[in-house]
Amino acid sequence: MAAVFSLQIVTPDRLIYDGEAERLIVRTLTGDVCILAHHIDYAAALVPGEASVVTADGERVAACSGGLLSVSDNQVRLMATTFEWQDEIDLARAQRAQEAAEAQLKTMSADDQNYALVEAKLKRALARIRTKT
């Protein structure tokens, strides 16, 4: 068995996972990172993307957006804005969100106050769709 670390995944409304894991991959501001056991202490902000958790029971994929990844003393904490396991994702809803966001972006100028907000929505929708399919 591979070496394990303790992993906690939380979103503002619930604790999603609390247990041991062998590997965690998430997307940060500077790109995808992979955490294995005994990683040095590390912290990074997250951006919307796919996340993968490998536990003794195998690999689980999830759509994750925003938040913070923090590793300290073999204790990994993933604070996500949203975190949905692959089987929890509502594909139809994500596709609707994608279309709505794309339509909105077309009518906006890049310096619109809400541009970043809509763009973030689009990114979240795309991350969900990519994870699901």
Partner: peptide
């Protein structure tokens, strides 16, 4: 010593 990516302020 924690490694911040890219740096503590931006994080």
């Amino acid at each position: 010593q924690t490694l911040y990516d890219p740096n503590p302020e931006e994080t």
